[in-house]
């Protein structure tokens, strides 16, 4: 290789460096941060010192010092809409009975701290976690009729088949539902996270408004169907006499609470207004759940994600 070849190579090298840096994903439209930009990007510095600077490339468009201060930057709706990839998620719900709901929120709060949490904590100390998870599996197992019906109503045939497969396998090989071998890696039949309220949601029925039920917690007229449906489609609802039924029901509540101690406390600790925080979390959670169910439904699969199919 001759000397001139080496020279050409060096020039090529420089061009590559410059090209590489020019394409580096620096925020093109973000407000130009002067001074800082020159020091925090090593490539750019090299570029500045080596090359005679062409004005168009580097001259900042807005030399005002105030522009650099993000605290002076006004919030612009359009700008944010363009940037906000999740603008469809700006969800909200009407809350015409807010005073009632807030009273119920307070009631549930006291119920949790005075009754449910002490019971669950005591129970926690006696029954080790694997046992409690087993009990949860067992009660989940009994929820099969409500879930499979929801799947069928939503035209999610695959989900209904998976649920049925799970039911058979876990009844036979999961000690009647205490274990969940069907969800293991080899079978991978996951529990379908669905209920009747979501079924209405899949068909486009809106929430209506927000209701905070005592004991049951956040809901809406639409989602209250789940409470009704779960009553009729859930075997323990038919236990006789009533106090045995109440005993089983309480036990299930305590068991599931024992696996979630701390969740409610965190929500409360992080919130500025815990009631609004819970209402919003519930609505966001339900909206995503309905969206996920729609993508599984044979009727809505293609219309739901038509715009953004992978």
């Amino acid at each position: 290789m001759s000397k001139s070849d080496a020279g050409i190579l060096w020039i090529l090298l420089l061009i590559f460096i410059i090209a590489g840096c020019a394409h580096s994903p620096r925020g093109e439209s973000s407000p130009p941060v002067q001074g800082q930009a020159l020091t925090d990007a090593p490539g750019k510095t090299a570029f500045m010192t080596v090359m005679p600077v062409s004005d168009a490339a580097v001259t900042p468009q807005e030399p005002s010092a105030q522009k650099d201060d993000p605290f002076h930057d006004e919030y612009v709706d359009d700008e944010d809409d363009a940037r906000d990839l999740h603008k469809d998620e700006k969800v909200s719900i009407a809350d015409p009975i807010e005073p009632f709901n807030r009273a119920m929120f307070l009631f549930n709060d006291k119920m949790y701290f005075w009754v449910l949490k002490p019971a669950a904590t005591g129970y926690n100390a006696v029954v080790p976690e694997p046992g409690r998870i087993g009990v949860k599996h067992f009660f989940d197992h009994l929820g099969y009729p409500a879930r499979v019906l929801s799947c069928l109503f939503q035209a999610d045939v695959k989900g209904a088949a998976e649920e049925t497969g799970r039911f058979v396998i876990n009844t036979l090989w999961g000690l009647g539902g205490f274990l969940d071998p069907a969800a293991g890696e080899s079978l991978n039949l996951q529990k379908q996270d669905t209920d009747l309220g979501q079924t209405l949601g899949v068909y486009g029925v809106g929430h209506g408004f927000f209701i905070m039920w005592p004991v049951y917690g956040p809901s809406s007229p639409r989602d209250s169907l789940t409470i009704v449906g779960d009553h009729f489609l859930y075997a323990p609802s038919y236990i006789d006499p009533w106090y045995a039924r109440f005993g089983v029901w309480s036990y299930e509540k305590i068991n599931s609470a024992s696996l979630r101690i701390g969740d409610y406390e965190s929500l409360k600790a992080a919130a500025i207004d815990p009631y609004i925080a819970m209402r919003d979390a519930y609505i966001q959670y339900r909206m995503q759940a309905v969206k996920a169910r729609k993508e599984k439904s044979l009727l809505f699969k293609y219309s739901a994600g038509a715009g953004q199919k992978e």
């Binding site: 609004i276 919003d280 979390a281």
Partner: peptide, 25 residues
């Protein structure tokens, strides 16, 4: 992406967006 660096501006835990949750509050 801001000034060549990726920064987190929202965390979504179990489908609940923190930003959205505080926005409502």
């Amino acid at each position: 992406l801001k000034d060549g660096k990726w920064k987190v501006y929202d965390v979504v835990v179990e489908n609940v967006s923190l930003v959205q949750n505080y926005r409502t509050q």
